[in-house]
Structure formats: C-alpha cells, structure tokens
C-alpha cells in the first residue's frame, strides 16, 4: 500500500505540531523529518535529532509517534517512527523561517554554482 498525498499531508501536519522544547521550533521546520513511506502496510516516519546526545532524544520521537498515530489511526493505519542518524542533521535542512528564528544567516549559494544550474 502506498502513501496517499492525503495521508502525507495529514502526517506532515501532525508532525508540524511536535515541537523541540529547547529550540521552540517544530520538527518539520527544523528538518528533522527525513522520510515518510509505506513498508508492508506500515506507515513509517524516519526522523533524526539535532545531536545524538539530545536531551529529548527519547521524548521527541515518542511524541512524534503519538502525533502520527493520532493522525492516521482513524484511517485504519498503523504507524511507526524510527530514529535515524544517517545522514546527520545539519542546519541546511531547516526551513528558511526556522533558520531565521534561530538567528542563522545561512551562507549564500556560490554564484558560479547558481549560474551553472
């Protein structure tokens, strides 16, 4: 069974309400959600954490799991959130708004690369 666009939207919206309590930003804007896919009927969310020793390393994935289950459970979907470390999280994964709120002025793209693209 594939993930429908409706289910993907539901999951992303649910994860958008899960906040990193230290940074005050949701995990989607932070770029912590890597993938949402179907695995033999199981809806799987791959997410990471900002650092391996993150103080909310247990509670944040649990909260994400609860949010996803609440969103897709009524559709008869079972779900699982998996914590992955590869690739490691980086600032570049954050949305522009999140980067701005954390006070980052991200490096501008190399003009040569932009021209080639």
């Amino acid at each position: 069974m594939a993930i429908t666009p409706f289910e993907r939207d539901l999951v992303e919206a649910a994860l958008g309400d899960v906040y990193d309590p230290e940074l005050g930003l949701d995990i989607v804007s932070l770029g912590l959600v890597y993938d949402i896919y179907d695995e033999d009927g199981l809806l799987v969310v791959d997410m990471t954490l900002t650092t391996p020793g993150c103080p909310v390393s247990e509670s944040l994935p649990q909260e994400a799991g609860a949010a996803v289950a609440e969103a897709v459970g009524p559709l008869g979907r079972t779900s699982e959130v998996r914590v992955v470390w590869d690739p490691p999280w980086s600032v570049e994964r954050m949305s522009d708004e999140a980067a701005e709120r954390l006070g980052f002025s991200r490096p501008r793209p190399d003009p040569v690369t932009v021209r080639r693209a």
Partner: peptide, 12 residues
Amino acid sequence: PTASVVGVTARG
C-alpha cells in the same frame, strides 16, 4: 492524556 501509543525504534 493521549490515548495513542506507538512503537519507536532506532536504526543506525
């Protein structure tokens, strides 16, 4: 309290 509880696993 939230009723839903899901499994959380770690993958390297």
